[in-house]
Design a protein around this nucleic acid. Sequence first.
DNA 1: GATGAATGAGCCTTCATTCAT
DNA 2: GATGAATGAAGGCTCATTCAT
Lengths: 212, 212, 212, 212
Amino acid sequence: MSPRIVDKDKKRNEIALAAMRVFARKGARNTRMVDIAAEAEIGKGTIYEYFRNREEILGAAFSLVMAEMERKLGSALRELQSPEEKIKIMIRLSYETLSRFTADFLEIFVDFWSAGIRQREQNSNQTIDLKTIYETFRRQLASILKEGIEAGRFRRMDTTAVASAIMAIVDGLLLQLILDRRAFDDAVVVDQVVSMVLKGIETEIHNAGDMK
Amino acid sequence: MSPRIVDKDKKRNEIALAAMRVFARKGARNTRMVDIAAEAEIGKGTIYEYFRNREEILGAAFSLVMAEMERKLGSALRELQSPEEKIKIMIRLSYETLSRFTADFLEIFVDFWSAGIRQREQNSNQTIDLKTIYETFRRQLASILKEGIEAGRFRRMDTTAVASAIMAIVDGLLLQLILDRRAFDDAVVVDQVVSMVLKGIETEIHNAGDMK
Amino acid sequence: MSPRIVDKDKKRNEIALAAMRVFARKGARNTRMVDIAAEAEIGKGTIYEYFRNREEILGAAFSLVMAEMERKLGSALRELQSPEEKIKIMIRLSYETLSRFTADFLEIFVDFWSAGIRQREQNSNQTIDLKTIYETFRRQLASILKEGIEAGRFRRMDTTAVASAIMAIVDGLLLQLILDRRAFDDAVVVDQVVSMVLKGIETEIHNAGDMK
Amino acid sequence: MSPRIVDKDKKRNEIALAAMRVFARKGARNTRMVDIAAEAEIGKGTIYEYFRNREEILGAAFSLVMAEMERKLGSALRELQSPEEKIKIMIRLSYETLSRFTADFLEIFVDFWSAGIRQREQNSNQTIDLKTIYETFRRQLASILKEGIEAGRFRRMDTTAVASAIMAIVDGLLLQLILDRRAFDDAVVVDQVVSMVLKGIETEIHNAGDMK
DNA sequence: GATGAATGAGCCTTCATTCAT
DNA sequence: GATGAATGAAGGCTCATTCAT
């Protein structure tokens, strides 16, 4: 808790943010350590005072986004009551947060996947455990679904599978957003998606009631 | 008068397949030209007799998968009548085809994204136009949706947006599959997804009828 | 003397000529074996039926030019009487012949120099002995100069040194021609050079006589 | 706050000099980046801290020589009065300076020619403009010739053409020097050349006066 | 004889990381 | 603590040459 440590953390954060900015401009893969240093207005070598290596920066940048998302989701969920609203907000918020970083973010994802999937036997220094993050998210979604089922709002279903499906939608939308920003109308698509998902999981009575 | 006669197209294909195999083992990004050559049991330089450069191999490997998917989809769709069945098969088949290549495939995707998104103004020799592929797929899905709406089977909706959503689901599922094969039960999830999607787009009467 | 041998020689010559044509277009250094094969309208491998390796083609192309020059010079010199005319024709003809091949020719020269100067201890396969060619030329010039001195037309001088100087002029002019064809008016420069050289070597009386 | 402080310009120069040394040993064309690094006693990568690429090293090495020549010529010309002396010193000095680097220098020349002649329309990053260098030199010589004509020391002539001829001699002498150091007696040849040139351009009266 | 498919040595260049100052 | 000069492993690609057909 000494000021030194706080400073260290702060600067580490600043560098990670700078990294994110460059990623957004040039793509994570095309970003060199020297680019990050320049963006952070520090010396190339200084980065290594705060990060062990390149991978660790990716990890930090990644965590930055995830942390922000979790923060936002947490407070949003606390304020809401109905499971429908909760599902809706989880789709919306995660999409919106992630889409702010788009391409770079997904590149980083892929970096982590490759690293995570392969290299299993190697000395996996894996800074970030994507699997765990997904797992957490999946559990959270599943529990909301369960909540809805118990409340008679959602139909019976394999909650884990449906949770996966919902997450898949968000990830997949990002892909398409990245691919062609112009051919893709965020607002409408997300609305339609939310609506489709809700219709897909709500009880028929509910659906029918929604109808008139 | 003539030396070894080689079916250039066939060999090109073999090399692309070899490339795919290495991609699956080491990840596209960690695959070196020399690895591909070794896998294809040819000399390093021979690759360049069939491909202009690294990028072109990625493109070929990518095309291999897409072509296979299109072939399968085409024949499947021709045999089916109901729009529900068509939607179902499109989800299933594309998921199944793509999942056979998993990680590498997505890595290649990302490679193309980065290249496609940035470098737009540059001399983009981009062998493969991802955007167009998506566009085609989206159109195809949308027309099936329309067909269903006109037949009174699907509710009214923004067909393009929903098409995007459906594609998003497939892509997103792949992501999760890659991330953690074990935590992810393909068969169940895909079933649930198909079911959810169909419930989400079918008319209520239909849903209700489906109920008993 | 069997027809086979004649054919071989003829084809060898054709290839060397084709090589020269490509050299003129792309520069010797940027010319690949495959380019030569294409220009000669034969297969890449066929070249090696007529030449041991790349270097030998350079040698052949070089010889082609030198042979042409010697032929022209020989017949021209036989027809002329006065040493002044002989000097004049030697400068003119050699310049004109060499300038037809310009850049490539000099590149080939340089190739031979490098090879000739260095690699001395190595297994010098040196196809062409530039030194000898120069030596021959120098001797020829020197003997004309001597002839002129004995006839009282040229002043006393170190004939070998002056011969070298004259050759130097031709070579040097080629350099400038190559460097900037447009800034360089052949006709005028060569005339002036010939005139300067003659004035430089003729006896004063002669010069004075030339004056009125 | 700051690491090793290095005189970038100085080191750049040292590397260029090291390059020149290797060129002299192995020929520019046969010199690899790693050879230069070894000679300069630095790492291979370090070269690229000071030069963008191979071409730029050639350019630097070339400039080194040209700069030295210009420096020497400048001071020499300032001290001299008579146009004859000036012409003499220009021939002598440029020959002597260039001959110190001989083969490599000419190879570099040729490298620049090829690059300069072809590739004209392409993105020619051409570090050095040979044409301009020649042009400058030619102009300088021509103005001395004019000076001599106006002073009544030199006969009337096309000064540009004769300037070209004089430069041609220097270049050409270098060629022969390179070709066969032993068959070529510098001292004598240069003297004879200077004498021939002067006789060739001086007025007859002058020549006659020189005679007795 | 002719051919071009196959090859791999070899080169330039990039860039993450180290470390002397 | 901060820095950037130094580094060398690594990789994509070229091209002369070989050789099976």
